[in-house]
Each structure stands twice: as structure tokens, then as C-alpha cells.
Write a protein that binds this DNA or RNA. Structure first.
Lengths: 138, 138
DNA sequence: ATCAAGTAGTTTGATAATCAAAGTAATGGC
DNA sequence: GCCATTACTTTGATTATCAAACTACTTGAT
């Protein structure tokens, strides 16, 4: 595996750039990075329990509670009881939150289109294939 | 471009997972995420000016000043005068910082190896090619 | 059925990160 | 030489985050 080293650095570089892009986009919207991350996760996965969300955001549940309080106040998300476990609470996007998610996703979409311009149709297909496999391994 | 939509979501999912992984790794080391990010950037790019670093970290220079102060105190980085512009200051890794970078990079390397196991040699090569092109377009 | 141990989420009090704005020093065009 | 600009630092206020204590619920052992 002689490529791994280069591959590793390409991934890190890509990650750093995405991270920086995300920050700069968020600045313009006037919403915190953590909130956008939350909206993104809920948009992708659908409703999640506080615990799951906190884990994915790499934050304590205490921190998440205050974050979600604010987002509920801003009508971006709502809390719902969990059917089978009354200790748990499901967090889900409201219509307003979903709209915001779609707007943010549109920006991502545009970025993806931009940075893949130099890739052939075939390369794009293979890239998707690779990423899908990698996401499974994670 | 019918793939773009799927590709976009695969990228976002990959980004979210990397982000979550980075957080969890950092927790174990007892160093802040911002500091690891700084070390990572300096490790990849070499010495950077405060302004450049602040931009890449998506943070104001005021915030960076206090961050770098702490890292200098921890002997992870050092400030050096800029040759041609006396207003600027170059931040670079110390030996201790470089060692930490290498340790962190080793973890990344391991992660990369892990998540690319299901990719063929050919796929890995193509993935690297795609990422390299994309990083250029960014 | 009961009870102890564990889990999900909230609250609280303290600490750390971040920002905007003002301040300092150096550059560069006129 | 002078003034607008740039790079960085300092300051004061705001916000985010954590660890730990607390409440409510679940699960497993007896």
C-alpha cells in the first residue's frame, strides 16, 4: 500500500478545506456552526435521539440540551417523545428547519459541482463508489 | 450530472464522519480541537503567517493570538519574524509540536488504511487522483 | 413484584473560546 | 513625508462547553 500515505494527506487536505468552507458559509447565514451541523445531521439521518445527536456532534448531552433549547426557540427543531423509551427524546427538523437544511444543502451541492468540474463522468461515478464504500467502513 | 446529488451527500456524510472521528481522537489526547487543527495545518503547509492561519482556521486574528500564546507556552509552536514584512509573524511547529503532529498523523494514517480496506488497489489510485484534482479546484 | 444499577436527558456553576472594536507598529502608494 | 491600509495584539463582553449533581425511566437479578 504505497498510496496510503498520499491518500491520507489528500483526505486531510480535503477535510481541512471543507471545514474552512463550512465555517465561511455559516458566517454569512448568521447561525452558529454547531447549529448548522445539527441541522445537517437531522437533514441527513432524520430524527435522532439527544444521545445519538450529542455523539455525532462530539459534545456532551448537557451542552446539546442548551443548544437544542435555542434551536427550539428559533423554531428550527422540535422535541418529540420516543415511542418505546420514555427516557429518550427525538429531535427533528421543523418545516422552517427543513427549509434551512435544503438551502444549506443547495450550497453544498453547488460546491460539489464546482470542485468536481475537472473530473470526468467516469471519475465522478468511481468517486461516488469509493466514498460509499468508505462511509460504510467508518 | 445526475450523480452530483448522490456524490454531494456522500461527501457530506464522509465529512461528518471525519469530523466526529477528529473530535473523539482529540478528546483522548487532552488537547483542544482548535490546537490540533493548528498543528495539522502547520504540519501540512509548514510555517504560516498569523493571518493565513486565522483564515484557514476560520477564526479572527484576535482569537488566534490567544490560541497561539497558549501553544507557545505549551512549547508546541513558536513565533518567528517574517523576513520581508516586519508586520507579519510566522508561526511554526517546534520539535515537540512536530512530534505531536506525527503522532496525530499516524492516527489519520491508520484511519485511512481502515476505511479504504474495501477498495481495490485500482480504486485507491483513482480516489487519490480525484481528491488531488478536487483539492486543486477548491 | 421489588429493588439496585444503569441510562437518557436536564440543570447548574465554573471555565474556556470567541468576537468586535480599539490600539500599535509596519508597509506602500502618492 | 503623509495617509490609507495591513498585520497583529489587547480588551471587555458574550457565548459555548464541560463536569457533576439531579430527575425520570428502564433493565436485570433475585
Amino acid at each position: 500500500m504505497p498510496h496510503i500515505h498520499q491518500l491520507n494527506h489528500a483526505i486531510i487536505e480535503f477535510y481541512e478545506k471543507l471545514s474552512s468552507w463550512e465555517h465561511s458559509v455559516v458566517k454569512d447565514v448568521g447561525i452558529s456552526l454547531a447549529q448548522v451541523h445539527t441541522i445537517e445531521l437531522l437533514g441527513i439521518h432524520g430524527a435522532l435521539r439527544m444521545k445519538e445527536l450529542a455523539e455525532k456532534l462530539a459534545v456532551t448531552t448537557g451542552t446539546l440540551t442548551v443548544q437544542i433549547d435555542k434551536m427550539v426557540a428559533a423554531e428550527l427543531v422540535e422535541r418529540r417523545p420516543h415511542q418505546s423509551d420514555r427516557r429518550s427524546i427525538l429531535v427533528d427538523l421543523t418545516d422552517k428547519g427543513r427549509t434551512l437544511y435544503q438551502q444549506h444543502d443547495e450550497l453544498h451541492h453547488q460546491l460539489t459541482a464546482d470542485i468536481t468540474t475537472s473530473l470526468s463522468e467516469e471519475e465522478q461515478k468511481l468517486l461516488l463508489q469509493c466514498l460509499t464504500k468508505m462511509n460504510r467502513e467508518f
